[in-house]
Design a protein around this nucleic acid. Structure first.
Lengths: 344, 344
DNA sequence: GTGAAAGCGCTAACAA
DNA sequence: TTGTTAGCGCTTTCAC
């Protein structure tokens, strides 16, 4: 029986002793970091097997002064937008040899703060931030501690960081194009609280897009929620009901997101309207849910998964020491399903 | 200017030197691990601020031989069941001072393997496994490396680990009770591939529940998908279509999960049936989606979030050295919405 | 109340 | 091709 030291863990030293080589030789064997004689290799291989040795990742990373993990700031993974984005992040990170630590903040200042603290203390090599932190001052904390960081689904509000966003204006434009082509010219906009720039841009793009096409905008067709609540579907439901209160009704509705669209559709269906016969509805995001709904939702697709992937790629470049960086503006695309129809 | 060593990082040594105390004193100050004189404390406090010192988490954890993080094995966070469960895990872990590393495997053997490898190498202090690993042999690997582990949504197939599951039989029974009370006695079961015990139990519970109530079971009312695909909604859709092919039709349908229920409802609605007027549908899980759908889905709620929380609690006990452990069997509950109705 | 010193498990520079 | 040695940044005895 080989004798181990205090802890139950088998270390490289144990292997070295048993194989009658130095610790560094074992290290070289494991990392292929120097040529070794065939016999040495064989002996080490055997001892490793015999002792059931496993390298200690934390020690290795500590020594190398890295963690091989990335932090992912998302507000809520039960929001499918973030879930899909997270999957892109997780997959790409894995592919490149990094782990992902989930910083799920629930839109909560205190949680944000405590996660940022972990980042400051070097828990990860870099972070992907996928929503605008509630606590503004934390951006400075992150900047000051010099952690590599990339913004995903956040427009670059500073030149400090690379960013990945989809072209939200173009997305709305695709929606308007499509509805216009179907003969609609009475079009409403239902918007969740525009507390981030992406949402502001969508709303603005709607207004300018309507004007550019010479379409009339009625005040009561622009229904935007003001109080920030959590549940987007409920917001959509309430906006939908509000829209129905005043005539004339529009013939088509652009929603600021799929969740809002789905809430609104519930309101319309509850009121006995048929979709798309009586009212066309178009969403934004193309979360998985969109195709599940009945009628399935026509929408503007955001490449969420890809946004996550690109975010990680940008981040790794930063981590690897590149100093220049890019801003990616990804393309939206229209996904035709069954919630829109030619005007009769 | 204080002089730093090679790396840009400010360490405890730097603080110690600047404050004219020993490194251990700084450590004591930070960890409140011994009484210090007021002046010393004050001096250290100042230097820390001046040098903008932050303790190095990885070094600390390395020294303490722990990582303060947990691994979470889930197949797919874009499946809302797992997303909600993950939130429970993440929140409870955070509350108890642990980080969560996401091992999202996409039901992929190779990914499972590489995540298990990280676990073996000591990346985390314990793991929550929330679905049956595809690669059976990995269970042994995990067992042999002695990592604290808890099973969530997996029935204890071995006495090695604590577990957290909901009472699936009782869940199905609640569903049958409810439908029976509404006057239904022609009830069908639509099931996704029963590749895990939870699903097998639901199916069995359906059959015995029907028998116990003296209800006739027709073969073509038990429609179960055989090939394992990824998308549960599509499975539901195809099962729904199959069900409609043979008469007599049932008056109510129990689905093995909400996603299957939603797919089936799409099939029914597409075929021109009305829900719940022509056919009642009840789901299982109560994912967020269930209330979004129109008509909103009556279903059996699984306490997913709570399952995650309890899983972490059990895990932490194991990590803290407790040797006895429990198996939790949580209660389902019926959530009445609009997809079921009294038989006419 | 405080300091000196050992060492967590590993990598890498320097020798040989 | 291989061994020796010095740490990575911290906690924790053991002294005084």
């Amino acid at each position: 029986m080989e004798k181990r030291k205090r802890s139950g863990r088998v270390t490289m030293r144990d292997v070295a002793r048993e194989a009658r080589v130095s610790q560094s030789t074992v290290s070289r064997f494991l990392n292929h970091t120097a040529p070794l004689s065939a016999e040495t290799k064989e002996r080490i291989r055997e001892v490793i097997k015999k002792l059931n040795y496993r390298p200690h990742l934390v020690a290795r990373n500590f020594k190398k002064q890295r963690t091989a993990s990335l932090g992912l700031f998302v507000p809520d993974i039960t929001n499918l937008f973030y879930a899909e984005l997270s999957r892109g992040v997780a997959d790409m990170a894995q592919k490149r040899g990094y782990s992902v630590i989930l910083y799920a903040t629930s839109y909560n200042r205190d949680l944000e703060r405590s996660f940022v603290r972990l980042v400051e203390q070097g828990q990860v090599d870099g972070v992907v931030v996928a929503y605008s932190l509630i606590e503004d001052s934390l951006w400075n904390v992150l900047f000051e501690c010099g952690i590599p960081l990339v913004l995903v689904d956040i427009y670059p509000f500073t030149e400090r960081y690379p960013s990945v966003v989809m072209d939200n204006e173009k997305g709305i434009d695709l929606a308007l194009d499509y509805l216009h082509r179907l003969g609609h010219n009475k079009i409403a906009y239902l918007g969740e609280p525009p507390y981030v720039l992406t949402l502001v841009k969508r709303q603005r793009a709607f207004l300018t897009g309507m004007q550019r096409r010479g379409l009339t905008i009625r005040d009561h067709w622009i229904v935007v929620e003001e109080k920030t609540q959590l549940n987007r579907v409920e917001i959509g439901f309430s906006l939908g009901k509000r829209l129905l209160k005043k005539s004339p009704l529009p013939t088509a509705v652009v929603a600021s997101s799929d969740l809002v669209a789905i809430g609104a559709m519930k309101a319309f269906l509850n009121a006995g309207m048929r979709i798309p016969e009586d009212l066309s509805v178009i969403g934004f995001d193309d979360i998985l849910l969109a195709s599940y709904f009945h009628p399935s939702l026509t929408t503007i697709r955001q490449p969420k998964y890809h946004m996550g992937e690109v975010g990680v790629e940008f981040l790794l470049r930063l981590i690897e020491g590149e100093t220049t960086f890019q801003h990616a503006l990804l393309e939206p695309c229209l996904v035709e399903r069954n919630s829109c129809q030619h005007i009769l």
